[in-house]
């Protein structure tokens, strides 16, 4: 997670304070604190319940939305069988791509900007799709800092997937393409990971 996210979030709270907006400053603080707690608790773990991951993303995206005054929408769809089967996921595996969509895809500058995260179980693998209709990789590559940041997210995530592949002898992948192939805008990230379950009983042990 980009450290500037924290400073920008603090700046948002400050702006609510200057507006004497007690309701929103409290709402933001509670949301942000919950996010920090989740990140601190979960990021050292190898796997966390998908439900927890969903909550982290939810809180993270809500924080970012408040920062940009609701100028984009997001949706997280986790297929129901995954939740009931207690599927597990490496913590924050999608976060760098969501961050890229916001920071480098410049979603707040786009009319009807959105991020969609979908998680399904397919062929014994966990398939994650992250789509956004931001400015896309081609446009953001013109900004040097954006493109190094984007490639850093790619590197870290593919290293994590490689390690999982070795450990679980799977064929997980990371594929990044344009969301709108014709206009070369937006980004579509496909991540496949070994599907892991943990029943509440084994988790307790």
């Amino acid at each position: 997670m980009n450290p500037y996210f924290f400073f920008n979030a603090m700046s948002v709270i400050q702006s609510y304070i200057y507006e004497n907006d007690t309701r929103n400053s409290t709402k933001f603080l509670v949301n942000f604190s919950r996010l920090m707690r989740l990140i601190l608790e979960n990021s050292p773990k190898e796997f966390i319940p998908i439900q927890t991951e969903e909550e982290i993303l939810q809180k993270y995206l809500e924080t970012q939305k408040l920062r940009f005054e609701d100028r984009f929408e997001f949706e997280i769809n986790v297929s129901p069988e995954i939740v009931t089967e207690h599927a597990m996921i490496p913590p924050m595996i999608t976060q760098p791509f969501i961050e890229n969509a916001i920071e480098h895809g410049q979603l707040h500058t786009i009319e009807g900007g959105f991020i969609h995260v979908t998680m399904v179980k397919q062929d014994g693998m966990l398939q994650i799709t992250i789509e956004d209709n931001g400015i896309g990789r081609k446009s953001s590559e013109q900004n040097k800092k954006s493109s190094t940041h984007r490639s850093m997210a790619m590197q870290i995530t593919s290293d994590r997937i490689d390690n999982l592949n070795k450990k679980y002898k799977t064929d997980g992948k990371l594929v990044v393409e344009d969301f709108n192939k014709k206009l070369e805008t937006g980004t579509k990230v496909l991540i496949s990971l070994p599907y892991k379950e943990e029943t509440p009983l084994t988790a307790a042990l």
Binding site: N8, S11, V12, Q14, S15, Y18, E19, R67, F68, E69, H108
Partner: peptide
């Protein structure tokens, strides 16, 4: 500033 919020905050200050 690209954030509306920051522009307003700094002017208020």
């Amino acid at each position: 500033d690209d954030e509306n919020r920051t522009r307003d905050l700094i002017s208020k200050m």
